[in-house]
């Protein structure tokens, strides 16, 4: 329902950030972003507003999650997998 595109913050001037979308740049407003943003951060753009600062470590976390989902499904009967599931649950509670 809402197009969101990630980009990298190049500069900040008050409530306005210049963001690189890997081909074009655009100024985004920072009025409603969830956390303070600094140069070099990734943010998600929706209708000209940054709606989320994307912490790089959480990008890695999502990728790791895919691996875990695959592992669990591939080795469902494996008891080891149950441990991993427990870890995901723990990770989720933390999130």
């Amino acid at each position: 329902m809402c197009l969101g595109v990630p980009g990298k913050v190049l500069a900040i001037d008050g409530m306005v950030a210049t963001v690189d979308f890997f081909g074009v740049k655009k100024e985004l407003r920072l009025d409603i972003v969830d956390e303070p943003v600094t140069v070099g951060d990734y943010v998600l753009n929706h209708v000209g507003y940054a709606i989320r600062r994307i912490p790089p470590e959480e990008v890695q976390e999502t990728l790791a999650l895919f691996e875990q989902i695959l592992d669990i499904t591939g080795a469902r009967e494996d008891l080891m997998a149950m441990d991993v599931q427990g870890e995901i649950a723990a990770g989720r509670a933390k999130a």
Binding site: D31, I32, R52, E58, V59, T62, L65, R92, A95
Partner: peptide
């Protein structure tokens, strides 16, 4: 409920956005 989009979504969401 399982959050498969942790790079963008948190349990509580964005407090500044909700306030606004």
């Amino acid at each position: 409920v399982f959050n498969a989009y942790p790079r963008c979504v948190t349990r509580e969401g964005s407090q500044p956005a909700q306030r606004v």
